[in-house]
């Protein structure tokens, strides 16, 4: 199963390189899908190509994962799927430091709206051009990024009111 996933992943990466020769990316394979690591300046061109090229036609944005890579800054991973060709790919992009700004995909994939809002509040990515950049899961005026590695996991004693402590640490 895993070997099949590896070959399928490599085949997709080769096909994408063939169809979009001008866009630089590094391909590797995860346990399930191919992973394309793209520099932030080529990111929008790659996603647009993946979506609009008839041989690729990745029409479903499944998921966005925002990661805090500590010393390497913030990253976002996008999972795309194509109904026409039944193939899938993962795109990784590291956000530029210190602005952590990535272009929004809401104009290409309306489904990106809530995923981006979640990624923005949880690790502090900024999605330029997002139509509604408010907090989604956290309180509206809370400016913390709980999924940053520096953000502490709160002690249960504080939550239970036995010990005093800060309600959340500003990052």
């Amino acid at each position: 199963m895993s070997a099949d996933a590896q070959t399928a992943g490599l085949n997709i990466a080769v096909l994408i390189k063939e169809r979009l020769p001008d866009i630089p990316f590094e391909a590797s394979v995860t346990k399930t899908y191919a992973d394309l690591r793209v520099p932030p300046e080529s990111f929008l061109a790659l996603i647009t190509g993946l979506r609009n090229d008839p041989e690729l036609s990745f029409d479903l944005l499944r998921n966005i994962v925002a990661l805090d890579m500590e010393d390497d800054g913030l990253e976002a991973k996008y999972h795309l799927y194509s109904f026409a060709h039944s193939h899938a790919v993962q795109v990784t992009v590291a956000a530029p430091i210190p602005s952590f700004e990535l272009p929004t995909l809401t104009h290409l994939y309306p489904a990106a709206n809530w995923h981006e809002r979640e990624a923005a509040e949880m690790v502090g990515l900024v999605f330029a051009g997002h139509p509604d950049p408010r907090n989604l899961l956290l309180e509206e005026d809370l400016r913390i990024h709980p999924l940053r590695k520096a953000h502490p996991l709160q002690k249960p004693e504080i939550l239970q009111g036995i010990e005093d402590g800060p309600p959340g640490v500003e990052v």
Partner: peptide
């Protein structure tokens, strides 16, 4: 040790 995956 190392690795990542997205499993639907």
């Amino acid at each position: 040790d190392e690795g990542e995956l997205y499993l639907p």
